[in-house]
């Protein structure tokens, strides 16, 4: 459990290596017990990792996928997750799937859900404003400061080290799906081939679990995602194509920082 604790003038920051990535916590100003709540959130993430990682032989997900564990014997959250995944799959016309390549893997939903829940733990402990970033998918609660919304930079998929845009908001989630970090790893479940229409797509919504799942589905959809996202209520999107050009859904500009 690596990661340091950095405090600067009441601001709590923590980076935790878990779930194969790094989850960054940012709690700008807290009077309560930040360490206790943070520790609880971190424990939560590790529990999710142990229970839901498809890369661990002994996780519930792996054993359920193999058939050696019945659903009723798994963590109750799995049933909940399966239901949510089914709903997202339907809404995305099958572009979101818990069986990529035939193997049972709900990670597309689980990661965002885990982060969302981690943020909820901090909220329950009394924090009114915090930001949890799980490997590039962000759940923001409250504002950065009273009167100042959170500013989330969107990494430019083609110009490493640069940002494409900055979005701002309160109580919102930002999820990006793309190939810049790990190559074309997202397969279009309808064609079986890697999705290559887009370099990256960023979806903005209220809660991270769904936002992340939609971002993944949209990336698999490719160019067709634009119309789908346009029609999706409560979610706005911004995409970058492999040639460096971009498009946004109609209401996305409301989120863009000036």
């Amino acid at each position: 459990m690596a990661g340091g604790l950095a405090m600067a003038g009441g601001r709590l920051r923590h980076a935790e290596h878990v779930m194969g990535t790094v989850v960054s916590f940012d709690v700008p100003d807290w009077a309560g017990d930040p360490d206790g709540a943070l520790a609880q959130a971190v424990r939560w993430l590790h529990w999710v990792d142990a229970t839901f990682s498809p890369y661990r032989d002994d996780s519930d997900v792996t054993r359920f996928g193999r058939g050696s564990l019945g659903l009723s014997d798994c963590a109750p959250e799995l049933a909940e997750i399966l239901a949510s995944c089914a709903a997202v799959s339907v809404r995305s016309g099958g572009y979101f799937t818990t069986a990529p390549g035939g193997r049972f893997d709900p990670s597309g939903y689980v990661k965002g859900w885990a982060i969302e829940r981690a943020a909820a733990i901090l909220t329950a402990a009394g924090s009114g404003s915090h930001c949890v970033n799980g490997g590039g998918d962000v759940q923001c609660v409250g504002e950065r400061e009273p009167g100042r919304p959170w500013r989330i930079g969107i990494a430019h998929p083609l110009r490493s080290g640069s940002l494409a845009l900055v979005v701002t908001g309160r109580d919102f989630a930002v999820a990006t799906s793309g190939s810049a970090e790990r190559g074309p790893h997202i397969i279009n479940p309808h064609t079986g081939t890697p999705a290559t229409d887009l370099a990256s797509i960023t979806v903005v919504g209220a809660t991270l679990a769904e936002t992340d799942a939609y971002a993944t589905a949209a990336y698999a959809m490719g160019s067709a995602a634009r119309d789908w996202l346009e029609a999706l209520e409560g979610y706005e999107a911004f995409a970058v194509t492999p040639t460096g050009s971009a498009w946004q859904t109609t209401n996305f500009p409301a989120h863009v920082a000036r």
Binding site: H17, T21, R151, I154, H156, G161
Partner: peptide
């Protein structure tokens, strides 16, 4: 292209990076 340093951002959303 926005340099991260100048953008005064609080967090970065991008394609999922590994550790």
């Amino acid at each position: 292209t926005l340099a991260a340093q100048n953008a005064k951002i609080d967090s970065v959303s991008g394609a999922t990076y590994t550790s």
